[in-house]
Design a protein around this nucleic acid. Structure first.
Lengths: 217, 217
DNA sequence: CGCTGCAAGATGTGATCACATACGTGTGAT
DNA sequence: ATCACACGTATGTGATCACATCTTGCAGCG
């Protein structure tokens, strides 16, 4: 059993890889809307590269389920129907409570401070009705926690779920206004963390995700 | 909310896609050993295509974690250390018990017969010490169940885990002989199914996976 | 006999071209 | 005015070449 220093996620620093990462975070943070058309050549010119890296990055996102073929030869951001979106949230709850349980003992006091800072910015974004800032903050809030789990197996799966979750959540949020998402459970998360209450912490994460499910009704 | 008939996994029938599927099942069924070197051009000539489709298929497998970069410019089947392999099995238990729970009410009497048939072939493979046949049978046993869940979200995640699980399990099995894996819980699975015992069914699946964890000690 | 060094091959990446097909538009006829 | 056909454009896919880098193997020298 060798060094195994660079787990699975390692890829050489190449143009295609950079583009892939860039598009991934943009998807998770809701920069794209469901139904948006994605063109390989357009992405290429947009980022100043040849078509080759864009082609690889886009095709990777398709295999990850972050993009789909709509008709033949048309790649777009998927529009999740209610059932599918519910499935994603259900899977998120299952995986992310587990990841949170593993992350909990590794979270430091500095992490708690940073989480509270992010939460403050999230609330400001909701107040201002800035959906993009809300999405970015929410993404960073959760993944600051999940990264601490050091899980090289579950964490990539959670990222895949967020790739599907991002665009549809942005759509739902912008469509129904920020008021409906105001009662997130981030405060419960940070409180449980400061109390050292592991199960309360996991339950708050689960409740935060379940609250997203209730948005569907 | 359109038709959404072809969920996420849809890809046009292209050379790269076919190669990708082929290599995926070969990995899940243990055709490759951890540490095996994968060359894009070699795969290309092996399957009679240009380098382009092989390049895409291999790179997709890298983004899925089924293959890794070892040194720079060297792609190989990953060797999971004990901790990592345990993580994969832990994630498998978490996801596959859930998928099994969703699949249970959809399993038919014909499915039960087919599962028993596969189980018989698995036992014959163990008897004969045919690790490859065991791997193939085990893969088909589990995924016949999981496909019935109709989950387009959790099922792809389970497949990702098997892509990592396959090669290392094959290695462990061939190294330690088939005797150690003889006491799988497939019989408990089919029995619980014939009794209509949903929780017993899920528990048998979980026990089957946990038995794999015990092989590590 | 052993070590050094250079050359040849192999590898992944990026770029460019050819190709088949789908879509949009504009022009022509009716 | 309306419909039909055709041409041009845009798309993803496949193939091929160039390039930088790394490995391998063999020859030449000490």
């Amino acid at each position: 059993m060798e060094q195994q220093t660079q787990g699975e996620g390692f890829s050489p620093d190449t143009a295609a890889t950079r583009l892939h990462r860039e598009l991934r975070t943009r998807l998770c943070e809701g920069d794209f809307a469901p139904g948006d058309l994605i063109s390989i050549r357009r992405i290429a010119t947009e980022y100043g590269t040849s078509a080759m890296p864009a082609r690889e990055a886009v095709r990777w996102l398709v295999t990850e389920g972050a993009l789909v073929f709509s008709d033949s030869r048309k790649i777009r951001v998927p529009e999740l129907n209610r059932e599918r979106f519910h499935e994603v949230l259900f899977a998120r709850k299952s995986l992310e409570t587990e990841v949170s349980r593993q992350a909990f003992p590794r979270l430091t006091a500095a992490d708690l401070v940073e989480l509270e800072g992010i939460d403050a910015r999230i609330n400001a974004a909701i107040e201002a009705g800035d959906m993009q800032a809300y999405m970015r903050g929410n993404h960073r809030f959760h993944f600051l926690i999940y990264r601490r789990s050091r899980s090289r197996v579950l964490l990539p799966l959670v990222e895949l779920l967020w790739l599907q979750y991002g665009p549809s959540m942005r759509q739902i949020g912008t469509r129904w206004g920020a008021s409906r998402i105001a009662d997130d459970h981030h405060r419960d998360v940070t409180h449980a963390l400061s109390r050292g209450d592991r199960e309360g912490f996991c339950n708050a994460i689960a409740a935060d995700i379940e609250q997203g499910m209730r948005l569907l009704e």
